[in-house]
Amino acid sequence: MPQGVWAVTEIRDGEFRRISYEVVSEARRLADALGQELTVAVLGSGLEELAPLMGQYGADRVVVADDPRLEPYTTEAHVAVLTQLIQQADPAIVLLGASMQGKDLSARLAASLGVGLAPDCTSLAIEEGNLTAVRPIYAAKAYIKVSFAADQWPQMASTRPNQMAIADPDSGRQAEIVQASFDLDDGQIKTKLVEVLKDESDRPDLTEAEIIVSGGRGMQDPENFAVIEKLADLIDATVGASRAAVDAGWRPESDQVGQTGKVVSPNLYVACGISGAIQHLAGMGTSKIIVAINTDAEAPIFKAANYGILGDLFEVVPPLCEEVKKYRE
């Protein structure tokens, strides 16, 4: 019978990404529910100082694969190494994050191991010793609860960013550090990172943002996005857009929230001049608090929102900036 929970981390610019803490914290909860150990896998190069940190977040053991060919990330190298490590350890559960890199890694790793994967889950549980998962489908217009086919191990899932609570670190807690041994043939690596084009914005990506301020058709003009950008700056938010605003050419595709854009789940979503077409509501429906500012009382966005102001965003947002400043200071 396979034993133990594995969590796979993600590193960028020499640090764990936030999603790694979410995944490890959730994996710890699952390991506790099973009464089993948590192993955290850390892959990259020059990991000596970084890897032990995961002990504070609940790892019993940190398996370190430290090799220059594992940084920067390539699908082939990471999948090859993790496939070997997981097959050797034979865990019951493997958890990854559904970040952009995590989506790439988890899908190929599951295929490589020949097991199922429940992707982009919003909650996980242990029932009668087995993993169950809840995940949104149709861009969160519905949810399914899934279980895993019998006798297939490990049970694998990836977790949607911003959904799993991060545990308080325990600075006194230490994990056993294990240097992994693996075979990696250079010929297996068929992709190469040539260049990284940096986004000028230092705000978090929409998929990981805690606060989002979005503009729609009611913005009327691309220049007017300055109004909501100012609000976004004040509350450390990322700016999003409706499909109408993107299709009008006012905002880049990467800003689109909705069923054919990004599916987001921030703590706070402020919709300015967005009517709330079903495909937009689907993309932001898992936001915890939704605020709508719109001149149309009949706009469907008001049915999805927790708080609403019936009014002109150009009259409401500037004073809102002044008001939120008071609370931010």
């Binding site: 994967l117 969160a140 949810y143 399914i144 899934v146 279980s147 086919a149 297939q152 429906g285």
Partner: peptide, 14 residues
């Protein structure tokens, strides 16, 4: 199926 659907539900009402 490797992943079995147990139940499908609509999002909780806000």
């Amino acid at each position: 199926r490797k992943i079995k659907v147990e139940e499908m539900s609509l999002p909780p009402e806000r």
